[in-house]
Design a protein around this nucleic acid. Sequence first.
RNA 1: GCGGGAGUAGCUCAGUUGGUUAGAGCGCCUGGUUGUGGUCCAGGAGGUCGCGGGUUCGAGACCCGUUUCUCGCCCCA
Length: 414
Amino acid sequence: MSSLQPVRGTHDLLPEEMRRHRAVTDAAQSVSAQYGYEEIATPIFEFTNVFSRTLGDTSDVVTKEMYTFEDKGGEMITLRPENTASVMRAYLSNGLQQTLPCRFFYRGPMFRYERPQKGRQRQFHQIGIECIGIPAAEADVEVIATGAHILKSLGILDRTTLEINSLGDTDSRNAYRDTLVEYFSKYESSLSKDSKERLTKNPMRILDSKDENDRKIVADAPLMPDSMNAESKGFFETVLMRLDQLGIAYNLNTRLVRGLDYYCHTAFEFTTTELGAQGAVMAGGRYDGLITQMGGPATPGVGWAAGVERMSMMIDEPTAQANSIAIVPIGDEAFDKAFSLAHQLRHAGFAIDFGVSGNMKKRMKRADRVGAVAALMIGEDELARDGVTIRDMETGEQTEASFASLESQLDRYR
RNA sequence: GCGGGAGUAGCUCAGUUGGUUAGAGCGCCUGGUUGUGGUCCAGGAGGUCGCGGGUUCGAGACCCGUUUCUCGCCCCA
Protein backbone atom coordinates (compact mmCIF):
# COMPACT_ATOMS: atom_id res chain seq x y z
CA MET A 1 0.00 0.00 0.00
CA SER A 2 1.23 3.45 -0.85
CA SER A 3 3.08 5.14 1.96
CA LEU A 4 1.14 8.32 1.13
CA GLN A 5 -1.96 6.77 2.62
CA PRO A 6 -2.63 7.61 6.24
CA VAL A 7 -2.44 4.68 8.64
CA ARG A 8 -5.67 2.69 8.73
CA GLY A 9 -8.23 4.18 11.03
CA THR A 10 -6.56 7.61 11.13
CA HIS A 11 -7.75 10.74 9.35
CA ASP A 12 -6.51 14.21 8.56
CA LEU A 13 -8.67 16.95 9.96
CA LEU A 14 -8.94 19.43 7.09
CA PRO A 15 -10.34 22.89 7.87
CA GLU A 16 -13.97 21.99 7.27
CA GLU A 17 -13.81 18.99 9.61
CA MET A 18 -11.61 20.84 12.08
CA ARG A 19 -14.24 23.57 12.39
CA ARG A 20 -16.77 20.95 13.45
CA HIS A 21 -14.39 19.51 16.02
CA ARG A 22 -13.65 22.96 17.39
CA ALA A 23 -17.34 23.81 17.60
CA VAL A 24 -17.83 20.69 19.73
CA THR A 25 -14.81 20.98 22.00
CA ASP A 26 -15.05 24.75 22.47
CA ALA A 27 -18.71 24.53 23.42
CA ALA A 28 -17.93 21.68 25.81
CA GLN A 29 -15.05 23.56 27.41
CA SER A 30 -17.10 26.69 27.87
CA VAL A 31 -20.17 24.95 29.35
CA SER A 32 -17.97 22.83 31.63
CA ALA A 33 -16.37 26.03 32.92
CA GLN A 34 -19.82 27.24 34.01
CA TYR A 35 -19.96 24.17 36.26
CA GLY A 36 -16.49 24.79 37.67
CA TYR A 37 -14.52 22.37 35.48
CA GLU A 38 -11.03 23.51 34.55
CA GLU A 39 -9.20 22.19 31.53
CA ILE A 40 -6.17 19.97 31.95
CA ALA A 41 -4.13 17.84 29.57
CA THR A 42 -2.26 14.65 30.32
CA PRO A 43 0.36 13.00 28.07
CA ILE A 44 -1.04 10.88 25.26
CA PHE A 45 1.07 7.96 26.47
CA GLU A 46 1.60 6.45 29.90
CA PHE A 47 3.31 3.45 31.38
CA THR A 48 1.25 0.48 30.30
CA ASN A 49 0.28 -0.48 33.84
CA VAL A 50 -1.65 2.80 34.28
CA PHE A 51 -4.25 1.27 31.97
CA SER A 52 -3.78 -2.46 32.43
CA ARG A 53 -4.13 -2.21 36.20
CA THR A 54 -7.27 -0.11 36.13
CA LEU A 55 -9.37 -1.08 33.14
CA GLY A 56 -9.64 -4.75 34.06
CA ASP A 57 -7.59 -7.72 32.87
CA THR A 58 -10.43 -9.16 30.84
CA SER A 59 -11.73 -5.99 29.17
CA ASP A 60 -11.42 -5.87 25.40
CA VAL A 61 -9.68 -2.53 25.64
CA VAL A 62 -6.80 -4.11 27.56
CA THR A 63 -6.70 -7.51 25.92
CA LYS A 64 -6.83 -6.53 22.27
CA GLU A 65 -7.17 -2.81 21.63
CA MET A 66 -4.16 -1.10 23.21
CA TYR A 67 -1.29 0.37 21.22
CA THR A 68 1.57 -0.85 23.40
CA PHE A 69 5.29 -0.76 22.66
CA GLU A 70 8.64 -0.86 24.36
CA ASP A 71 10.55 2.40 24.19
CA LYS A 72 14.33 2.72 23.81
CA GLY A 73 14.79 2.71 27.56
CA GLY A 74 13.00 -0.64 27.82
CA GLU A 75 9.84 0.82 29.35
CA MET A 76 6.44 -0.56 28.37
CA ILE A 77 4.44 2.36 27.01
CA THR A 78 0.79 2.55 25.88
CA LEU A 79 -0.99 5.22 23.85
CA ARG A 80 -3.97 6.15 25.99
CA PRO A 81 -7.16 4.26 25.02
CA GLU A 82 -9.19 6.57 27.29
CA ASN A 83 -8.34 9.39 29.63
CA THR A 84 -9.87 8.69 33.04
CA ALA A 85 -7.00 6.51 34.25
CA SER A 86 -4.48 9.14 33.08
CA VAL A 87 -6.31 11.92 34.89
CA MET A 88 -6.32 9.88 38.10
CA ARG A 89 -2.63 9.18 37.66
CA ALA A 90 -2.04 12.93 37.24
CA TYR A 91 -4.16 13.62 40.31
CA LEU A 92 -1.97 11.31 42.39
CA SER A 93 1.35 12.36 40.80
CA ASN A 94 0.71 16.01 41.56
CA GLY A 95 -0.53 15.57 45.12
CA LEU A 96 -3.89 17.15 44.41
CA GLN A 97 -5.49 15.33 47.36
CA GLN A 98 -4.83 18.57 49.22
CA THR A 99 -7.30 20.54 47.13
CA LEU A 100 -10.37 18.33 46.87
CA PRO A 101 -12.80 18.42 45.26
CA CYS A 102 -11.17 18.62 41.82
CA ARG A 103 -13.17 19.24 38.66
CA PHE A 104 -11.34 18.61 35.39
CA PHE A 105 -12.26 18.96 31.73
CA TYR A 106 -10.09 17.43 29.01
CA ARG A 107 -10.05 17.02 25.24
CA GLY A 108 -7.67 15.15 23.00
CA PRO A 109 -6.87 12.11 20.90
CA MET A 110 -7.27 8.52 22.13
CA PHE A 111 -6.02 5.34 20.48
CA ARG A 112 -7.59 1.92 20.14
CA TYR A 113 -6.64 -0.85 17.74
CA GLU A 114 -10.13 -1.61 16.46
CA ARG A 115 -11.83 -2.31 13.18
CA PRO A 116 -12.73 1.13 11.77
CA GLN A 117 -16.40 1.89 11.15
CA LYS A 118 -18.61 4.90 10.96
CA GLY A 119 -17.95 6.90 14.13
CA ARG A 120 -15.14 4.56 15.13
CA GLN A 121 -11.50 5.11 14.33
CA ARG A 122 -8.13 4.00 15.66
CA GLN A 123 -7.16 7.53 16.52
CA PHE A 124 -10.24 9.37 17.69
CA HIS A 125 -10.96 12.29 19.94
CA GLN A 126 -12.74 12.54 23.22
CA ILE A 127 -13.80 15.24 25.58
CA GLY A 128 -14.59 14.41 29.15
CA ILE A 129 -15.01 15.65 32.68
CA GLU A 130 -13.98 14.12 35.99
CA CYS A 131 -15.33 15.18 39.36
CA ILE A 132 -13.04 13.87 42.09
CA GLY A 133 -13.68 13.81 45.81
CA ILE A 134 -17.45 14.09 46.21
CA PRO A 135 -19.16 10.93 47.48
CA ALA A 136 -22.68 12.39 47.31
CA ALA A 137 -25.18 11.43 44.63
CA GLU A 138 -25.51 15.12 43.77
CA ALA A 139 -22.07 14.92 42.13
CA ASP A 140 -23.38 12.25 39.75
CA VAL A 141 -26.28 14.52 38.89
CA GLU A 142 -24.03 17.54 38.39
CA VAL A 143 -21.85 15.52 36.02
CA ILE A 144 -24.87 14.33 34.03
CA ALA A 145 -26.33 17.84 33.99
CA THR A 146 -23.08 19.23 32.61
CA GLY A 147 -23.13 16.64 29.84
CA ALA A 148 -26.76 17.30 28.99
CA HIS A 149 -26.08 21.04 28.94
CA ILE A 150 -23.23 20.55 26.46
CA LEU A 151 -25.41 18.41 24.20
CA LYS A 152 -28.12 21.02 24.41
CA SER A 153 -25.76 23.84 23.48
CA LEU A 154 -24.69 21.76 20.47
CA GLY A 155 -28.34 21.37 19.49
CA ILE A 156 -28.32 17.57 19.72
CA LEU A 157 -29.76 16.86 23.17
CA ASP A 158 -33.22 16.12 21.80
CA ARG A 159 -31.75 13.56 19.42
CA THR A 160 -30.22 11.55 22.23
CA THR A 161 -31.66 9.45 25.04
CA LEU A 162 -30.18 9.34 28.52
CA GLU A 163 -30.02 5.70 29.59
CA ILE A 164 -29.24 5.20 33.25
CA ASN A 165 -28.68 2.31 35.63
CA SER A 166 -26.99 1.55 38.91
CA LEU A 167 -24.35 -1.12 39.35
CA GLY A 168 -24.45 -0.67 43.12
CA ASP A 169 -21.42 -0.46 45.36
CA THR A 170 -18.64 -3.04 45.20
CA ASP A 171 -20.41 -5.48 47.53
CA SER A 172 -23.69 -5.24 45.62
CA ARG A 173 -21.96 -5.54 42.30
CA ASN A 174 -20.03 -8.63 43.37
CA ALA A 175 -23.16 -10.18 44.86
CA TYR A 176 -25.07 -9.59 41.65
CA ARG A 177 -22.24 -10.97 39.61
CA ASP A 178 -22.25 -14.19 41.63
CA THR A 179 -26.01 -14.48 41.31
CA LEU A 180 -25.79 -14.05 37.55
CA VAL A 181 -23.02 -16.61 37.14
CA GLU A 182 -25.06 -19.07 39.16
CA TYR A 183 -28.15 -18.44 37.02
CA PHE A 184 -26.48 -18.47 33.61
CA SER A 185 -24.35 -21.52 34.44
CA LYS A 186 -27.56 -23.54 34.48
CA TYR A 187 -28.11 -22.59 30.84
CA GLU A 188 -24.49 -22.60 29.74
CA SER A 189 -24.96 -25.18 27.00
CA SER A 190 -27.69 -23.14 25.30
CA LEU A 191 -25.92 -19.77 25.50
CA SER A 192 -24.35 -18.25 22.38
CA LYS A 193 -20.63 -18.64 21.80
CA ASP A 194 -19.99 -15.03 22.78
CA SER A 195 -22.03 -15.34 25.94
CA LYS A 196 -20.23 -18.53 27.03
CA GLU A 197 -17.06 -16.49 27.01
CA ARG A 198 -18.76 -13.64 28.83
CA LEU A 199 -19.79 -16.06 31.56
CA THR A 200 -16.22 -16.17 32.83
CA LYS A 201 -14.98 -12.79 31.61
CA ASN A 202 -17.87 -10.40 32.21
CA PRO A 203 -21.18 -12.07 33.06
CA MET A 204 -23.08 -8.77 33.22
CA ARG A 205 -22.43 -8.37 29.50
CA ILE A 206 -24.74 -11.28 28.81
CA LEU A 207 -27.59 -8.98 29.85
CA ASP A 208 -27.24 -6.85 26.73
CA SER A 209 -26.52 -9.69 24.31
CA LYS A 210 -28.15 -9.28 20.91
CA ASP A 211 -28.47 -13.00 20.37
CA GLU A 212 -32.14 -13.98 20.18
CA ASN A 213 -31.84 -17.13 22.26
CA ASP A 214 -29.69 -15.37 24.86
CA ARG A 215 -32.42 -12.81 25.24
CA LYS A 216 -34.93 -15.48 26.16
CA ILE A 217 -32.64 -16.72 28.93
CA VAL A 218 -31.92 -13.15 30.01
CA ALA A 219 -35.63 -12.39 30.30
CA ASP A 220 -35.87 -14.48 33.48
CA ALA A 221 -32.46 -13.57 34.86
CA PRO A 222 -32.23 -12.09 38.35
CA LEU A 223 -32.37 -8.29 38.44
CA MET A 224 -29.73 -5.99 39.80
CA PRO A 225 -31.94 -4.23 42.37
CA ASP A 226 -32.59 -7.56 44.12
CA SER A 227 -28.88 -7.87 44.86
CA MET A 228 -28.43 -4.28 45.91
CA ASN A 229 -27.98 -3.35 49.56
CA ALA A 230 -30.01 -0.57 51.14
CA GLU A 231 -27.25 1.99 50.85
CA SER A 232 -26.83 1.43 47.10
CA LYS A 233 -30.57 1.61 46.56
CA GLY A 234 -30.79 4.86 48.48
CA PHE A 235 -27.92 6.35 46.51
CA PHE A 236 -29.57 5.59 43.19
CA GLU A 237 -32.93 6.89 44.38
CA THR A 238 -31.31 10.20 45.22
CA VAL A 239 -29.70 10.41 41.79
CA LEU A 240 -33.05 9.86 40.08
CA MET A 241 -34.86 12.27 42.40
CA ARG A 242 -32.34 15.02 41.68
CA LEU A 243 -32.53 14.39 37.93
CA ASP A 244 -36.30 14.79 38.18
CA GLN A 245 -35.79 18.00 40.12
CA LEU A 246 -33.67 19.43 37.30
CA GLY A 247 -36.08 18.22 34.64
CA ILE A 248 -33.52 15.94 33.02
CA ALA A 249 -35.33 13.13 31.23
CA TYR A 250 -33.91 9.61 31.46
CA ASN A 251 -34.72 6.05 30.62
CA LEU A 252 -34.12 3.46 33.34
CA ASN A 253 -32.26 0.59 31.75
CA THR A 254 -31.47 -2.35 34.00
CA ARG A 255 -29.48 -3.97 31.20
CA LEU A 256 -27.04 -1.07 30.95
CA VAL A 257 -23.65 -2.33 32.13
CA ARG A 258 -20.03 -1.24 31.84
CA GLY A 259 -17.08 -2.80 30.12
CA LEU A 260 -14.47 -1.25 32.37
CA ASP A 261 -13.84 -2.65 35.82
CA TYR A 262 -13.66 0.54 37.80
CA TYR A 263 -17.32 1.58 37.58
CA CYS A 264 -19.79 1.35 40.47
CA HIS A 265 -23.13 2.91 41.35
CA THR A 266 -24.38 5.22 38.59
CA ALA A 267 -23.78 4.18 34.97
CA PHE A 268 -25.23 6.24 32.14
CA GLU A 269 -25.06 6.81 28.41
CA PHE A 270 -26.46 9.41 26.09
CA THR A 271 -27.32 7.30 23.05
CA THR A 272 -28.48 8.03 19.52
CA THR A 273 -29.83 6.05 16.61
CA GLU A 274 -28.18 8.33 14.05
CA LEU A 275 -24.73 6.76 14.04
CA GLY A 276 -25.33 3.20 12.86
CA ALA A 277 -23.84 0.58 15.13
CA GLN A 278 -22.36 3.21 17.40
CA GLY A 279 -25.09 4.17 19.84
CA ALA A 280 -23.14 5.91 22.56
CA VAL A 281 -22.33 9.58 22.19
CA MET A 282 -21.41 10.28 25.79
CA ALA A 283 -20.99 7.70 28.53
CA GLY A 284 -19.75 7.53 32.06
CA GLY A 285 -20.45 6.79 35.65
CA ARG A 286 -19.05 6.60 39.14
CA TYR A 287 -15.66 5.04 39.83
CA ASP A 288 -15.07 5.14 43.59
CA GLY A 289 -12.65 2.23 43.53
CA LEU A 290 -10.35 3.48 40.81
CA ILE A 291 -7.93 5.57 42.82
CA THR A 292 -7.49 2.80 45.37
CA GLN A 293 -6.74 0.38 42.54
CA MET A 294 -3.95 2.70 41.45
CA GLY A 295 -2.46 2.70 44.94
CA GLY A 296 -3.90 5.98 46.21
CA PRO A 297 -6.13 6.73 49.19
CA ALA A 298 -9.82 5.84 48.85
CA THR A 299 -11.30 8.72 46.87
CA PRO A 300 -14.68 8.91 45.15
CA GLY A 301 -14.98 10.03 41.54
CA VAL A 302 -17.55 10.37 38.80
CA GLY A 303 -17.27 11.49 35.18
CA TRP A 304 -17.97 10.82 31.53
CA ALA A 305 -16.27 10.80 28.16
CA ALA A 306 -17.81 11.73 24.82
CA GLY A 307 -16.76 11.06 21.23
CA VAL A 308 -15.89 14.24 19.35
CA GLU A 309 -16.19 12.59 15.91
CA ARG A 310 -19.60 11.22 16.86
CA MET A 311 -20.89 14.57 18.04
CA SER A 312 -19.41 16.49 15.14
CA MET A 313 -21.32 14.21 12.77
CA MET A 314 -24.54 15.23 14.47
CA ILE A 315 -24.20 19.00 14.70
CA ASP A 316 -25.18 21.54 12.07
CA GLU A 317 -22.42 22.98 9.92
CA PRO A 318 -20.68 25.63 12.06
CA THR A 319 -20.58 29.14 10.66
CA ALA A 320 -17.25 30.11 9.18
CA GLN A 321 -14.74 32.32 10.93
CA ALA A 322 -14.50 36.10 11.21
CA ASN A 323 -15.44 38.48 8.41
CA SER A 324 -12.45 39.13 6.22
CA ILE A 325 -11.57 42.10 4.08
CA ALA A 326 -9.64 41.62 0.84
CA ILE A 327 -7.03 44.09 -0.35
CA VAL A 328 -6.74 44.43 -4.11
CA PRO A 329 -3.78 46.44 -5.42
CA ILE A 330 -3.60 47.47 -9.06
CA GLY A 331 -0.05 48.12 -10.23
CA ASP A 332 3.39 47.95 -8.60
CA GLU A 333 3.20 51.22 -6.76
CA ALA A 334 -0.16 50.30 -5.28
CA PHE A 335 1.21 46.90 -4.26
CA ASP A 336 3.80 48.63 -2.08
CA LYS A 337 1.12 50.64 -0.35
CA ALA A 338 -1.22 47.66 -0.04
CA PHE A 339 1.47 45.51 1.54
CA SER A 340 1.86 48.00 4.39
CA LEU A 341 -1.86 48.59 4.64
CA ALA A 342 -2.56 44.88 5.15
CA HIS A 343 -0.06 44.85 8.00
CA GLN A 344 -1.54 47.98 9.57
CA LEU A 345 -5.15 46.76 9.37
CA ARG A 346 -4.29 43.33 10.79
CA HIS A 347 -2.75 45.03 13.80
CA ALA A 348 -5.91 47.14 14.07
CA GLY A 349 -7.81 43.86 14.51
CA PHE A 350 -9.16 43.18 11.01
CA ALA A 351 -8.94 39.83 9.23
CA ILE A 352 -7.24 40.64 5.94
CA ASP A 353 -7.01 38.52 2.82
CA PHE A 354 -4.02 39.67 0.81
CA GLY A 355 -3.12 37.58 -2.22
CA VAL A 356 0.47 38.13 -3.23
CA SER A 357 -0.06 37.70 -6.96
CA GLY A 358 -2.56 37.96 -9.74
CA ASN A 359 -4.24 40.70 -11.70
CA MET A 360 -7.25 42.55 -10.45
CA LYS A 361 -9.74 40.08 -11.81
CA LYS A 362 -8.02 37.13 -10.14
CA ARG A 363 -7.82 38.98 -6.87
CA MET A 364 -11.50 39.91 -6.98
CA LYS A 365 -12.38 36.33 -7.72
CA ARG A 366 -10.31 35.18 -4.80
CA ALA A 367 -11.96 37.77 -2.54
CA ASP A 368 -15.31 36.34 -3.54
CA ARG A 369 -14.23 32.76 -2.97
CA VAL A 370 -12.89 33.34 0.53
CA GLY A 371 -16.14 35.07 1.41
CA ALA A 372 -14.68 38.53 1.97
CA VAL A 373 -17.31 41.05 3.06
CA ALA A 374 -15.47 43.96 1.47
CA ALA A 375 -12.63 44.62 -0.97
CA LEU A 376 -10.25 47.55 -0.69
CA MET A 377 -9.08 48.60 -4.13
CA ILE A 378 -5.95 50.65 -4.54
CA GLY A 379 -4.79 51.85 -7.95
CA GLU A 380 -3.48 55.02 -9.56
CA ASP A 381 -6.69 56.94 -8.93
CA GLU A 382 -6.76 56.02 -5.26
CA LEU A 383 -3.08 56.82 -4.72
CA ALA A 384 -3.57 60.21 -6.33
CA ARG A 385 -6.18 61.16 -3.75
CA ASP A 386 -4.39 59.34 -0.90
CA GLY A 387 -7.16 56.81 -0.22
CA VAL A 388 -8.81 53.57 -1.26
CA THR A 389 -12.07 52.43 -2.83
CA ILE A 390 -14.16 50.21 -0.57
CA ARG A 391 -16.35 47.76 -2.43
CA ASP A 392 -19.07 46.05 -0.46
CA MET A 393 -18.90 42.48 -1.76
CA GLU A 394 -22.53 41.77 -1.05
CA THR A 395 -24.18 44.82 -2.59
CA GLY A 396 -21.47 45.83 -5.05
CA GLU A 397 -21.71 49.39 -3.79
CA GLN A 398 -18.43 51.32 -3.86
CA THR A 399 -17.36 54.23 -1.65
CA GLU A 400 -14.19 56.26 -1.44
CA ALA A 401 -12.21 56.55 1.78
CA SER A 402 -9.06 58.41 2.76
CA PHE A 403 -6.30 56.47 4.49
CA ALA A 404 -6.88 58.64 7.55
CA SER A 405 -10.55 57.66 7.92
CA LEU A 406 -10.19 54.10 6.66
CA GLU A 407 -10.25 52.20 9.96
CA SER A 408 -13.38 53.91 11.21
CA GLN A 409 -15.10 53.38 7.87
CA LEU A 410 -14.27 49.67 8.05
CA ASP A 411 -15.69 49.23 11.53
CA ARG A 412 -19.01 48.03 10.16
CA TYR A 413 -17.24 45.07 8.53
CA ARG A 414 -15.65 43.73 11.71
C1' G B 1 -10.70 -11.12 15.32
C1' C B 2 -15.50 -12.74 12.22
C1' G B 3 -19.35 -11.99 8.10
C1' G B 4 -21.78 -8.90 3.90
C1' G B 5 -21.24 -4.61 0.24
C1' A B 6 -18.11 -1.26 -2.36
C1' G B 7 -13.43 1.23 -4.62
C1' U B 8 -13.64 4.88 -12.13
C1' A B 9 -11.05 12.86 -12.42
C1' G B 10 -10.23 17.17 -6.42
C1' C B 11 -15.92 15.88 -5.20
C1' U B 12 -20.69 13.14 -6.59
C1' C B 13 -21.29 9.42 -9.98
C1' A B 14 -22.37 6.98 -15.30
C1' G B 15 -19.79 3.31 -18.20
C1' U B 16 -24.72 -1.92 -22.08
C1' U B 17 -23.85 -9.72 -22.68
C1' G B 18 -15.80 -8.27 -22.19
C1' G B 19 -14.56 -4.72 -28.02
C1' U B 20 -11.24 1.05 -31.03
C1' U B 21 -9.05 7.03 -28.11
C1' A B 22 -12.95 5.87 -20.44
C1' G B 23 -17.50 9.98 -19.88
C1' A B 24 -21.05 13.69 -17.23
C1' G B 25 -22.17 17.34 -13.49
C1' C B 26 -19.79 20.25 -9.82
C1' G B 27 -15.04 22.34 -8.71
C1' C B 28 -10.26 24.18 -10.80
C1' C B 29 -7.40 27.01 -14.81
C1' U B 30 -7.54 30.37 -19.32
C1' G B 31 -10.12 33.74 -22.46
C1' G B 32 -14.56 36.85 -23.74
C1' U B 33 -13.75 41.99 -19.90
C1' U B 34 -5.81 46.36 -20.57
C1' G B 35 -9.37 48.74 -13.02
C1' U B 36 -14.09 44.94 -10.84
C1' G B 37 -16.09 38.93 -7.94
C1' G B 38 -20.96 36.19 -8.16
C1' U B 39 -24.40 35.13 -13.69
C1' C B 40 -23.50 33.85 -18.85
C1' C B 41 -20.52 32.00 -23.18
C1' A B 42 -16.10 29.55 -25.28
C1' G B 43 -11.83 26.74 -24.43
C1' G B 44 -8.35 23.87 -21.22
C1' A B 45 -5.92 20.93 -17.50
C1' G B 46 -6.86 16.79 -14.59
C1' G B 47 -7.44 9.26 -14.70
C1' U B 48 -1.19 3.85 -13.87
C1' C B 49 -10.17 2.69 -13.61
C1' G B 50 -7.24 1.05 -5.26
C1' C B 51 -2.86 -2.44 -5.77
C1' G B 52 -0.84 -7.33 -7.57
C1' G B 53 -1.61 -11.63 -10.31
C1' G B 54 -4.78 -14.70 -13.63
C1' U B 55 -8.43 -15.96 -17.79
C1' U B 56 -8.87 -13.90 -22.92
C1' C B 57 -7.08 -12.13 -29.56
C1' G B 58 -8.87 -8.15 -26.23
C1' A B 59 -10.39 -6.60 -19.06
C1' G B 60 -12.76 -0.54 -15.95
C1' A B 61 -16.09 -4.97 -16.50
C1' C B 62 -14.78 -11.93 -15.36
C1' C B 63 -11.60 -15.01 -11.51
C1' C B 64 -7.98 -15.14 -7.27
C1' G B 65 -5.17 -12.50 -3.71
C1' U B 66 -4.39 -7.97 -1.18
C1' U B 67 -5.55 -3.14 0.69
C1' U B 68 -8.85 0.80 2.03
C1' C B 69 -13.69 2.42 2.99
C1' U B 70 -18.50 0.97 4.38
C1' C B 71 -22.65 -2.06 6.92
C1' G B 72 -23.20 -5.60 10.78
C1' C B 73 -20.97 -8.93 14.99
C1' C B 74 -17.63 -8.43 19.23
C1' C B 75 -16.62 -4.16 21.99
C1' C B 76 -16.89 0.84 22.75
C1' A B 77 -16.88 7.44 22.85
